Lab assay of single mutants.
Amino acid sequence: DYYKILGIPSGANEDEIKKAYRKMALKYHPDKNKEPNAEEKFKEIAEAYDVLSDPKKRGLYD
């Protein structure tokens, strides 16, 4: 669930989505986080943001 990945409610607005994305992206960026699964988690976060930040894609997802 993209909302769960970003840690936001399904009714989140654009600003909340952007803030959550930035926070999670910094936390899991492969250059900052050396955990083995950090890169995979970072890709999931980027995919979630891509879908939820685009009103058309978000509409299809919801």
Rank of each mutant, 00 (worst) to 15 (best):
D1T: 05
D1P: 04
D1V: 05
Y2P: 13
Y2Q: 05
Y3D: 01
Y3F: 06
K4G: 11
K4Y: 09
I5A: 14
L6A: 01
L6V: 01
G7H: 03
G7Y: 01
I8K: 01
I8N: 01
I8R: 00
P9K: 04
P9N: 07
S10L: 06
S10H: 06
G11E: 09
A12P: 00
A12L: 02
A12I: 01
N13Q: 06
N13W: 00
E14W: 04
E14Q: 07
E14V: 11
E14K: 02
D15K: 03
D15L: 04
D15S: 06
E16C: 06
E16A: 08
E16H: 04
I17W: 00
I17Q: 01
K18M: 13
K18L: 14
K19V: 14
Y21L: 01
Y21Q: 03
Y21D: 02
R22T: 13
R22Y: 10
K23W: 14
K23A: 14
K23D: 15
M24T: 06
M24V: 11
M24G: 09
A25W: 12
A25E: 14
A25R: 10
L26I: 15
L26H: 14
K27W: 11
K27Q: 15
K27P: 02
K27T: 10
Y28I: 06
H29I: 11
P30M: 09
P30G: 14
D31A: 14
K32N: 01
K32T: 03
N33D: 15
N33E: 12
K34T: 12
K34P: 12
K34D: 06
E35L: 13
E35F: 06
E35Q: 13
P36T: 11
P36F: 03
P36Q: 14
N37P: 09
N37T: 06
A38T: 07
A38N: 14
E39T: 09
E40V: 13
E40S: 13
E40I: 14
K41E: 13
F42Q: 14
F42G: 08
F42T: 10
F42L: 11
E44S: 09
E44R: 09
E44Y: 15
I45E: 02
I45F: 04
I45N: 02
A46L: 00
E47K: 14
A48C: 01
Y49C: 07
Y49Q: 03
D50C: 08
V51I: 11
S53G: 08
S53P: 01
S53V: 07
S53M: 12
D54L: 01
P55N: 15
P55L: 09
P55E: 08
K56D: 04
K57F: 03
G59I: 02
G59L: 06
L60M: 08
L60R: 12
L60K: 12
Y61M: 14
Y61F: 11
Y61A: 09
